[in-house]
Write a protein that binds this DNA or RNA. Structure first.
Length: 868
RNA sequence: GGACGUGUAGCUCAGUUGGUUAGAGUACUACGUUGACAUCGUAGGGGUCACAAGUUCAAGUCUUGUCACGUCCACCA
């Protein structure tokens, strides 16, 4: 067992930095937050902590929500649970790659050979990006994430989060990769994961496929183009309004609503696409809405999701014109699907487009249309929603490619059902989850054409002609995991056969980062000490509401597929930080507040106080004044403790004896009843995950204690019969400190350890028992006594304040009227009232009356002159 | 367009199952403390509880509608 410090005495001044240092060292040496692997599952509290993304710096929002979790976790620990509270860093994936590219000015080119001497350098002035090999790139990622993770860890430690750091993991770590690959193989075996050649949403900047959960609509300016189409074999024309004229060469059909009288005569005929003279069928389809645009529209491969859906059920061939790089691909017009009535013209025109970026091609096509007179009006500007990768800056394209998909659409019902087994706080977050699942219209594309991620444990055989057979992948065996198919070889092959006819190739893609993050329970268990008794479901999943659609959903999906049960009993959804001044702050450079600055400026406990004041799921304004309020509170707690210690020591009462049965005075027992009520409320609040109310009620009781109870008993505690008062002060302080402990973790530890009655090797307050109602059963008295005393005391104070006199002004005569019953209560506190109000002995009279307690008369004496 | 949420003092927020005169912190004003207090206390000003209708003896709280804001989803010709 570790000692807190050698001299266990409160310093005169409250210095948060020193207190924080002492407590952190003590917890580290004492392993205060270490998970006990021997604990039975029933006596554990198991948390599925969000691993923060470590690309860049920690946001104040992290501090906010992670602290809320820590508060709830600490409560459970103090309730005697063995807490499994892991922490990990989500470092694989695109965000990290992007940060590494920018930080080191490098780009990954898999064709570049490995350079063992390459050292990435952070040079903000560099303008060119150096191309490096895949392995060098991954090493650079590992190097930078290690630095970022250290910074994250420092902050989380500094703010006093009670993770068991021995359980730390990273999502790019070997065990995480193993879990992720194991999950993938299990999904393959269950028929839930397949590789398919299909149109996929594609980000041309990152050159990767993207899943539905990662896209967002952004209102984007564009233009409506009215384009003339001809009906084949006649002079009849009609107008198509489109925002994407560059897709004319990819047009596969023209559709109008079956009931649309305007276009009914055209059904069954062919339309001729201008510029390229492409004959395409004119087809009735419910998909077209008569009142939108001109009511008739072109279907292209692929302008949007609707095009993809329409193409799928049409059976028509794809005309893919956009390449993986976001440029129009070279196409031999008049071959394959690219039918035309005028091959020479079409070829000539298309050749001008090939190689252009989509946006450039759009302008070029518009120019051509203007020339031929097929543009019926100048383009009309509009703003319309366009799909973007949430981290991208260029609109997504639909590109047909081979990708791994996880099948989710058939299981929507089951996944909603599973969501209902989970208790969501706040409850309405469940409907967000259900709305998301309900709205899903694509399976989960999990392959990414990137580098810093979990590789697929898959190879493909190459036949004698050198063709890769993608239809029969060679899967790794579980005992091989983790594998990197670009380095490791499948069973039955050797490295020399890589890329050779009759040999094999590795799958060079990596998994969507969520494919790994969705396994945080399983990954955390893989990092738990051997022999632990944990399993799914975990107790709680804390997270923010924006990632219900990703992290929560995917985790439920994976647990459904692998364990056939919900991943956790409860989901605790935190709110966001809304910063009304965010724009100002980012504009005025150098004025941005970083989490570490806040911790230093206001102290960790003060920042924790700010976070804990906000309820789960409620978006909260960033408000430094509340941190200041927290700082004042810690200061007050410190001073109150210092005062109690002083009284206890001066009283000469033997502190080594148990105090509870020495509490005999009616006022003391009455205040204990007041305290018991607070303890009740706080426990009830925590049980409902309402830590904010637990804090509020604790704080209220504490101020009451300082303002009233302490003032009432001061005199008696200094008298020659201090026993009951001193014992009560000890009990109350012990209780309040433990009530505050989940919130003000440092202040409470310091005070707890420095109590004159603390043991030599006192355990951390964070392993002490959270106060319970029945702790007080033996001594709790009638609360009315204390309430009466406070009422009378306030009457006296008010009298003095109204007469603009000092609170110390003596009272020569005082008459208080009150109901008889109240008088009997007041009589029990007579001595304390005289002391606290500075009322002359025998000057206090009570007279009976019905109704409220009132002050009948009061005569104030002369102020005593202060000794010089 | 749909779902969910929010709207209470200048600001940040409480307000449990409807029940006296709607609260706290902060900011402002005045006075008093400054012997546990990088403090604190007392008093004061400040609210049509977004708006409208309804249910009820009684509505900040329940119902319906409207408006504003936020989040998620959808639309994308």
């Amino acid at each position: 067992m570790t000692k807190y410090k050698e001299t266990r005495k409160l310093d005169d001044r409250f210095a948060p930095a020193d207190i924080e240092r002492r407590a952190l060292d003590f917890w580290e040496a004492d392993a205060t937050y270490r998970f006990d692997k021997e604990a039975e599952r029933a006596n554990t509290f198991v948390v599925d902590t969000p691993p923060p993304t470590v690309s860049g710096s920690l946001h104040i929002g992290h501090i906010f929500s992670y602290t809320q979790t820590d508060v709830m976790v600490r409560y459970n620990r103090m309730r005697g649970k063995s807490v499994f509270y892991p922490i990990g860093w989500d470092d694989n994936g695109l965000p990290t790659e992007r940060r590494v590219q920018n930080y080191y000015h490098i780009a990954c080119n898999p064709t570049v050979p490995y350079d063992p001497d390459f050292k990435p350098v952070h040079d903000p002035k560099a303008d060119k990006r150096t191309e490096v090999s895949r392995r060098n790139f991954i090493e650079a990622c590992e190097e930078l994430t290690a630095v970022d993770e250290k910074a994250f860890e420092d902050i989380f430690r500094q703010i006093g989060h009670s993770y068991d750091w021995s359980l730390k993991y990273t999502t790019i770590g070997k065990k995480a990769i193993r879990e992720s690959q194991k999950s993938f193989l299990d999904l393959v075996e269950k028929g839930l994961a397949k590789s398919v050649e299909a149109p996929t949403m594609w980000d041309v900047t990152f050159q990767s496929a993207i899943a539905q959960a990662e896209i967002e609509d952004r209102d984007t300016p564009g233009f409506f183009h009215d384009i003339r189409f001809r009906v084949d074999g006649s002079d009849t024309t009609f107008t198509i309004a489109t925002t994407r004229p560059e897709f004319l060469p990819a047009c596969i059909a023209v559709v109008a609503h079956p009931d649309d009288e305007r276009y009914k005569p055209f059904f069954g005929k062919k339309a001729i696409v201008p510029l390229f003279d492409i004959p395409v069928p004119i087809v009735p389809s419910e998909h077209a809405e008569p009142d939108k645009g001109t009511g008739i529209m072109m279907v292209c491969t692929f302008g949007d999701t609707a095009d993809v859906a329409w193409w799928k059920q049409s059976g028509l061939p794809i005309k893919q014109i956009v390449g993986l790089d976001g440029r129009l691909m070279p196409i031999e017009y008049g071959t394959g699907a690219f039918v035309t009535l005028s091959p020479e013209t079409a070829k000539a025109r298309y050749n001008k487009l090939a190689g252009l970026k989509v946006k450039e091609a759009r302008t070029a096509v518009v120019d051509m249309l203007r020339e031929t007179g097929d543009l019926l009006a100048e383009p009309k500007p509009l703003t319309h929603p366009v799909k973007f990768y949430e981290k991208g800056s260029v609109p997504l394209e639909f590109v047909s490619s081979r990708q791994w998909f996880i099948s989710i659409l058939p299981y929507k019902k089951e996944l909603i059902e599973m969501g209902r087994k989970i208790k969501w706080t706040p409850a309405h977050m469940q409907s967000r989850y259900e709305a998301w699942v309900d709205g899903l219209n694509q399976d989960w594309c999990i392959s990414r054409q990137r580098f810093f991620g979990v590789p697929f444990p898959v190879w493909y055989a190459i036949d004698e002609k050198g063709l890769v057979n993608y239809d029969k992948p060679i899967y790794a065996r579980e005992d091989q995991l983790p594998v990197d198919p670009m380095v490791d070889t499948p069973r039955g092959f050797d490295e020399a056969m890589r890329g050779q006819p009759g040999g094999f190739v590795g799958d060079k893609d990596v998994m969507d980062t969520w494919a790994t993050s969705s396994l945080t329970p399983q990954i955390a268990l893989a990092h738990a000490p051997l022999g632990h008794k944990l399993s799914l479901p975990f107790d709680v999943r804390p997270q923010a509401h924006d990632i219900i659609r990703t992290w929560a959903f995917y985790t439920i999906m994976k647990a459904f597929a692998h364990e056939h049960q919900e991943p956790w009993h409860e989901a605790l959804i935190s709110g966001f930080i809304l910063d009304p001044d965010r724009k100002k702050m980012s504009k005025s450079k150098g004025n941005v507040v970083t989490p570490i600055d806040l911790l230093v400026k206001h102290s960790s406990d003060a920042v924790r106080y700010w976070a804990a004041r906000a309820k789960l799921g409620i978006d909260t304004a960033f408000e430094e004044q509340i941190m200041e309020q927290g700082r004042k509170l810690t200061n007050k707690i410190f001073n109150a403790a210092k005062f109690v210690f002083m009284i206890v020591e001066k009283s000469g009462v033997d502190v080594s004896k148990p105090y509870i049965n020495r509490i005999t005075d009616p006022v003391d027992r009455s205040f204990v009843a007041r305290l018991k009520e607070t303890v009740d409320d706080a426990n009830k609040a925590f049980a409902a995950n309402d830590y904010a109310f637990a804090l509020e009620t604790t704080e209220k009781c504490f101020w009451d204690f300082c303002d009233n109870y302490l003032e009432l008993v001061k005199g008696r505690a200094y008298s020659d019969t201090p026993d009951s008062a001193v014992a009560t002060l000890m009990l109350v302080l012990d209780t309040l400190i433990r009530l505050f402990a989940p919130f003000m973790v440092f202040t409470t530890e310091e005070i707890w350890q420095c109590r004159p009655w603390a043991g030599n090797n006192e355990l951390s307050v964070h392993r002490a028992a959270y106060p319970q109602s029945d702790d007080f059963d033996a001594v709790a008295g009638d609360e009315a006594v204390y309430e009466t005393a406070v009422t009378v005391l306030n009457l006296i104070r008010k009298q003095k304040a109204e007469n603009k006199r000092s609170l110390k002004t003596p009272i020569i005569a005082l008459e208080i009227a009150a109901p008889e019953k109240t008088i009997t209560w007041a009589e029990l506190v007579r001595t304390d009232l005289l002391n606290a109000g500075n009322v002359r002995p025998d000057a206090l009279f009570f007279s009976p009356q019905a109704g409220d307690i009132t002050l009948v008369s009061c005569v104030l004496g002369e102020d005593e002159k202060k000794p010089a």
